[in-house]
Amino acid sequence: MDKVKEKVSISEMFSKFRELGMVLFIIALIIFIQFRNSNFLTLENIDDLITNAAILSILAIGMMMVIITRGIDLSIGATLALSGMSTALMVSANQNMHPVLALLMGTVVGMIAGGIIGLLIAKLNILPIIATLGMMNVYRGFTFIIGDGGWVSAYQMPDSFVGIATSSFLKVNTLVWIAIILYIIAYYFLNHTRLGRQVYAVGSNPGSARISGVNNDFIIFMVYSIMGALAGLCGVLWVSKFASAQGDTATGYELSVIAACVLGGVSMAGGVGKVSGIIIGVLLLGILQNALPLINVSVFWQLAIQGAIILFAVLSNVLIKRNSDKKNLARRVL
């Protein structure tokens, strides 16, 4: 019996070990940065860091679900911009619009955008990469058209709207609260509801999922709709936070979101991904984005560093997996 127990623990150790390793790495990184610049671990900077990471973290929830179903969504930067722009135009035209209504509107815009992509992928069998690449440009184009090539800036927006992202509750920024609430919901949904588990089933083995009576098409449609809804919500938050809506808002932001997921241990092969994992991934990216300027790394280095980190993360994931598979094989007695 002992032998069996050992087998269990080794395979499970792998996932735990990975998260533990990431946490240790983050701690080491924090210590290093703190030594280089003592302003890093001030309350003010930490608050800034978390607030900045909030939007990324919300998007990572949706992206994780998409990747778990073996998909990818490159359109979220464009969806975010579209929802942000349309909401900004709406509130600047109706100055007394309730901020909650604005949030709701942005979410719906995003959900429709995501739902269209979901239909293309689930019903017309278009590869996720092609569908989202195509729609990314469509949505980006719409953003420019409705914004008439210009931008909506702070003075056109009512204070209540800008207040969404600047207000705080218990000294913690509203954005962070929204993220926390969404994380609790996502955790519950993915781990404690049938629909949530079906997301994993579809990603882990689409064929058996269909045989077990899972409606694969609906699950795919659902995850892209949720992704779109979250991107729409973030669009409103983004515009409120930066107090401006532009046509090229969040261009390329999808890469950061995918990076956060990959760093958080979400497997591109589908079926694997944990809420706790993406929190770590978001934290790591958030720290890097916050700290690089603090330790005098030029902004122009950031993109390359981010690319190198994604590459490193995906490749090392594969190498670790290979190593553990090899060890499993070697344990077979011949």
């Binding site: 049938r194 588990r197 994993y200 882990s204 083995n205 058996s208 079926g271």
Partner: peptide, 20 residues
């Protein structure tokens, strides 16, 4: 065997007729 390699044994047993 048609299974979900990324999920636990419990889930493989109950997927499709979970206790709720």
């Amino acid at each position: 065997v048609t299974c979900y390699p990324d999920l636990t044994v419990t889930e493989n047993i109950f997927l499709g007729h979970e206790e709720v």
